[in-house]
Design a protein around this nucleic acid. Structure first.
Length: 418
RNA sequence: GUGGGUGUAGCUCAGUUGGCAGAGCACUAGGUUGUGGUCCUGGUUGUCGCGGGUUCGACCCCCGUCACUCACCCCA
């Protein structure tokens, strides 16, 4: 038996990096005022279809969708934003506080062909803000994201930003785009032609070589922004600069989800081959209303946790297991019984202690203590028990001292207190 | 969804025009009867990814399948 395609186990040997990222992210986001939220990994299919967009690749061909036993159409979440928006609306969170800031860490599911940095179950660190229209929040999120990567020691990342406009300037742009597309109709692939009616913006994202060529001079949203969007984007840019965040304006950056408005961005890397995006996000001012809440601005981003970890694995900065405080070697039944109680007591007080119950030889156990990188070894055999002198060996200095069983516990807690 | 590469011990990998399946690491036991990290000696481990086919005989050739991997695509 084995895991199904694109799914994988994250084994204890690999977990330290994951925990490090979670810890850093939680600390940083908390400092910025974000609260953790945990939500289901299954939702009604309709939620994703409505929010992400019917014509997107994610909804069209990548979702794990099934009917449950009563025939209800359900979907394993392919991203986090839709669910968090649903939660925000369902619990009327706007009522208690006009500004809400969340983060979430968890698995997402998309049925794509697996590749390095691309799995069918993958993990995202998701951040969302509701109720803030100001461009400073856009900028602040990018700054925070940048800071997280810096703290994790990542270099060679670049931030790409773009503005996708809003309902006010989009008709003007769409008209220009449609005019352009109609003139290139003969050079577009089937998929693009189909999308022309549904969602022409997505065509800009087509990577087919002939389409790409045909779309070289296609109009960009950036050149058709209304006054409000233009001011907004300018504020984002200047405030990023003032905070010392480097970025590249990329007018071809179109994201694969329909709900984005105004600012969109990606953090890209060259470390993972074709999977260049380590994080991506954008503003979605219409989404809360779309899902049934009051008209509320929203913005957020997601970090590809798996990709982040893979990049960090390529650096030589992999965190190591802490050395063990004490390894107890108990030889014989009587010693084993004592050793068992000692180990329980010590672990209870937070001293990292291991004992081996298998009845191995002293030499074998010394080797094992060494494998754990134990600072101290406690040796208790028949001799030590009859003489009531339990040996404590310092593994670095090789010095050995002995304690009576009565003073042993206080002495040990004293040693490890330091 | 399309195309290429790979699959042999727990791990990293050799292997043979088709003729008994290997190394290093790891694990394990010894090397003065109870003292580790180095060293020495021995030992254990395999449906050669899985299923068919060809053959006297297949880890090797053929077909299928599963998984991994790279690119396309998509995105985090």
């Amino acid at each position: 038996m084995q895991t199904i395609r694109g799914f994988r186990d994250i084994l204890p040997e690999k977990i330290l990096l994951w925990q490090k990222v979670e810890k850093e992210a939680t600390q940083l986001f908390t400092a910025f005022g974000f609260k953790e939220i945990r939500i289901p990994i299954i939702e009604k299919t309709q939620l994703f279809a409505r929010s992400i967009g019917e014509a997107t690749d994610i909804v069209e061909k990548e979702m794990y969708t099934f009917a449950d036993r009563k025939g209800e159409k359900l979907t394993l979440r392919p991203e986090g934003t839709a669910s968090i928006v649903r939660s925000y609306v369902q619990h009327k969170m706007y009522a208690s506080d006009p500004v809400r800031k969340f983060f979430m860490i968890g698995p997402m599911f998309r049925r794509e062909r697996p590749q390095k940095g691309r799995y069918r179950q993958f993990y995202q660190i998701d951040v969302e803000v509701f109720g803030v229209e100001s461009a400073y929040i856009d900028s602040q999120l990018i700054f925070m994201l940048n800071e997280l990567f810096a703290r994790l020691g990542l270099t060679d990342l670049s931030a790409h930003i773009n503005s996708l406009g809003c309902p006010e300037c989009r008709p003007d742009f769409q008209k220009a785009l449609l005019d352009f597309l109609n003139s290139k109709k003969d050079h577009l692939c089937e998929n693009c032609l189909r999308r022309m009616n549904k969602n022409p913006l997505r065509i800009l994202d087509c990577k087919g070589t002939t389409c790409k060529e045909a779309l070289k001079d296609a109009p960009a949203t950036l050149d058709h922004l209304c006054k409000g969007c233009e001011d907004h984007f300018n504020t984002v840019k200047t405030s990023l600069k003032e905070q010392g965040v480097k970025f590249i304006v990329d007018k071809t950056l179109v994201r694969g989800l329909d709900y984005y408005t105004r600012t969109a961005w990606e953090i890209q890397t060259t470390a993972l081959g074709a999977q260049s995006a380590v994080a991506g996000g954008g503003r979605y001012d219409g989404l809360v209303k779309e899902v049934g809440g009051p008209s509320t601005p929203g913005i957020g981003f997601a970090i590809g946790f798996d990709r982040l970890v893979e990049i960090m694995e390529q650096m030589d900065d992999i965190p190591k297991e802490e050395p063990l405080d004490l390894f107890i070697i108990a030889l014989g039944d009587a010693a084993m019984e004592k050793g068992y109680h000692w180990s329980c007591q010590l672990n209870q007080t937070g001293i990292r202690t291991e004992i081996d119950f298998r009845g191995k030889s002293l030499k074998a156990l010394m080797k094992r203590a060494n494998k754990f990188d134990a600072r101290y070894v406690l040796i208790a055999g028949e001799n030590e028990l009859t003489q009531d002198a339990i040996i404590l060996r310092d593994m670095n200095t090789k010095e050995q001292v002995s304690f009576s069983s009565e003073t042993l516990m206080p002495e040990l807690t004293n040693i490890f207190k330091k």
